[in-house]
């Protein structure tokens, strides 16, 4: 099962053993916890003061900060995806010009 790449190896078996060990450790730590602990009000998500029973955090809000952090970069990329056929062909022509330059001049 071991995949030798020539610069290292990858074995799912070793990984699985490691994962089993990690699980065992986690269980061990968990079993050391307080048995009298009950879920309380303390860790309910705060959703603008509403009672959070049955509330679903939509995909648009998940990782909000992560997505917002990337947004300036992504919006610039998104601006290229206009969806207009002329732009698609324009990109094809640009790539073709690039390939021509590399193949004819650079080669």
């Amino acid at each position: 099962m071991t995949l030798l790449t020539g610069y290292g190896f990858w074995s799912p078996l070793v990984w699985l053993a490691g994962a089993a060990g990690a699980t065992f450790l986690a269980l061990l730590l968990w079993s050391r916890g307080r048995r009298d602990y009950r879920r309380g009000e303390g860790e309910l998500p705060f959703l603008s003061g509403e009672k959070a029973e049955g509330a679903h955090v939509g995909a648009g809000h998940l990782y909000w900060g992560f997505v917002e952090g990337l947004r300036p970069y992504v919006e610039r990329l998104r601006a290229f995806h206009t969806g207009f056929l002329g732009d698609y062909v324009a990109w094809l022509v640009v790539v073709l010009a690039l390939v021509f330059l590399i193949v004819l001049v650079g080669g």
Binding site: T82, G83, F84, L85
Partner: peptide, 10 residues
């Protein structure tokens, strides 16, 4: 018109 019928973008 290609610009008017386009829905898929982004």
């Amino acid at each position: 018109d290609g610009r008017k019928v386009t829905e898929l973008s982004g």
